[in-house]
Structures are given as structure tokens and as C-alpha cells.
């Protein structure tokens, strides 16, 4: 179980990186960031890239910055960077809470936020976060910079809108209103396993009623997305069991659940119902 041979390129700047990527992409060149998803696939030889553009030695890609409205996360920011809050905004607490559900500690030391998005595993917690919060994904290539809204970014199981010569340079997450409540829940077989279903919710309270609800579901469909029916079931309702159950039911009905040899679509809908309700309960702490 050793990777097939490849040539490793080690650019020192982002410009250099996209230049190399433009050259090697047609020859099955790929970007190597944290490698925590890519390297296992290479070990199984399910991927045999001929070139890897290793972006770990580019200065400044581990930058996390806030301009007051947006949090920017650089291409080499590791999951572990979120173990402590990165911004004095409910978004910081949200990211910290979500981060501790990602795989395991040593994986979080290497794996990157942006790499997770580029890999686009259906069960990825960061993909769910990006979809729920309508992140902007910034693609860089020799052709320039291209911001992609999250809802246009995910295209299928491990498939995205990134062109082969584009490098995912940054993700921008909108900061949340200070009164935003969030909740997260996921279901996996063992600690640290891929989530079979996960839900992230945010909303504000206006006059004791839920407003601006966002309900994101991951792990159930080929890629995570917001579930409008569940959001509609929440908006205007007081937070509590009744509204939460209605939203969970709406989400379960709305998803086109994936099936595999061991997991029926029916079961995955059961999980969606459970994780959405539990995420909502978590938000109401």
C-alpha cells in the first residue's frame, strides 16, 4: 500500500503554485495541502497523481483574518487552528465546536479547512459549515481569482466546481450577528469516523421567535446543502420541541438520501431527522 510514483513540486509563492499547477494539471497534477484525505487515497492507489503541487511551504497561507464582516481562512489553515476560537464572534465558537468533531487530534494537526472543501467528501464537517453559512470559495489560477458561492461549489460526491488548474486559495465565511445561536450534531459509528449524517443550524431570535434560520445537512446526500423546508418550518416559530421536530421532519423528507450496502435511504433519513433535531436542541442550550 505505497503511493504510485509522482513528482513533488514545492512552490514558494501562490503565483508560482498556480503556474506549476497550470502546467501539470493536464498530466494529472494535484494540489497537496494537509494530505489527510489525499494520501490515504494514494496509498490505496485509488488516486495516482503524476505531480503534486505541495503548497505547505508557501508563506502566509496559514493566515486567518477578519475584516469585521468576513472571516478569511487561508489554504493551509489546519483544523487544529480552530481548537481555540479564532474570532470574537459567534462564528469563532461555532468553528471551535465543529472542529472537535473532525476525525482525530493528529489528523487535525495536518488536515486543512480548504483542503476539506476541495476534497468535498459528503460527510465533511467543513463542507457542511461552508454550505450552511453560504461561504465564498476563492479559486486561484493563472487566469486570476474566481470567487465561487458555496451553493455553486459542490457538484457531487468528491466533485466541485474547481477547474483542474484552480487552487482553492481561501474560504471566506460571513461573520454572524452577535446574537446568533448555533447548534451542531453528527452521527458516526465510532469516535472520529466519517459522519453518516450531520446537521449545522444557526438562527437569531426576534421577539422570542426564530428568524434567519439556516439548516444545513451533510453526509446524507452527495454534498451538503441548506434545507429550505426545514428553515421554513423554523422561521417565525418559538424555539422548542414542536418547531424542532417539525424542522427535523421536514429535513428528513426533503433529503434524497444516499444508500449503500449496509445503509438504506430510509435509515439515513432517520439519521437526518435525529441530527437536525439534536442540532436544534444543542442551539437552544
Amino acid at each position: 500500500m505505497k503511493p504510485a510514483p509522482f513528482i513533488r513540486h514545492v512552490p514558494k509563492t501562490l503565483d508560482e503554485a498556480v503556474k506549476i499547477l497550470a502546467q501539470v494539471a493536464p498530466q494529472d497534477g494535484r494540489v497537496l495541502a494537509g494530505g489527510q484525505s489525499l494520501v490515504p487515497i494514494m496509498a490505496f492507489r485509488l488516486a495516482k497523481p503524476a505531480h503534486l503541487v505541495d503548497i505547505n511551504e508557501i508563506d502566509g497561507l496559514d493566515r486567518i483574518a477578519s475584516d469585521g464582516t468576513t472571516l478569511s481562512i487561508g489554504a493551509c489553515v489546519r483544523h487544529g487552528a480552530f481548537h481555540k476560537s479564532v474570532v470574537g464572534n459567534p462564528l469563532g465558537a461555532l468553528l471551535t465546536f465543529v472542529a472537535r468533531h473532525i476525525a482525530h487530534y493528529p489528523i487535525r494537526m495536518r488536515g486543512t479547512f480548504c483542503g476539506s472543501l476541495a476534497h468535498a467528501d459528503p460527510s465533511s464537517e467543513w463542507c457542511l459549515t461552508a454550505a450552511t453559512l453560504d461561504a465564498t470559495i476563492v479559486a486561484r489560477s493563472t487566469r486570476g481569482e474566481r470567487p465561487i458561492p458555496a451553493r455553486e461549489f459542490f457538484a457531487g460526491i468528491m466533485s466541485t466546481a474547481l477547474a483542474e488548474d484552480e487552487l482553492l486559495a481561501e474560504v471566506r465565511l460571513p461573520l454572524l450577528s452577535p446574537d446568533t445561536k448555533f447548534g451542531f450534531n453528527e452521527f458516526s459509528r465510532r469516535a472520529g469516523d466519517f459522519a453518516m449524517s450531520a446537521a449545522l443550524v444557526t438562527y437569531r431570535l426576534q421577539g422570542g421567535k426564530i428568524a434567519e434560520a439556516r439548516v444545513g445537512v451533510g453526509g446524507a446526500e452527495p454534498f451538503p446543502r441548506r434545507i429550505a423546508q426545514a428553515e421554513a418550518a423554523l422561521n417565525g416559530q418559538p424555539p422548542g420541541d414542536k418547531a424542532f421536530r417539525a424542522a427535523a421532519e421536514a429535513a428528513a423528507n426533503a433529503v434524497e438520501a444516499m444508500e449503500d450496502h449496509q445503509t438504506s435511504a430510509e435509515y439515513r433519513r432517520d439519521l437526518v431527522r435525529a441530527v437536525v433535531r439534536r442540532a436544534l436542541e444543542h442551539s437552544n442550550r
Binding site: 489527510q36 494520501v39 490515504p40 496509498a43 487544529g80 493528529p106 489528523i107 495536518r110
Partner: peptide
């Protein structure tokens, strides 16, 4: 940092 040396 503790890391998996098989994934580097």
C-alpha cells in the same frame, strides 16, 4: 505536533 507519519 502529534501526527500520523504514514500521511506525510
Amino acid at each position: 505536533e502529534p501526527v500520523r507519519s504514514c500521511l506525510m
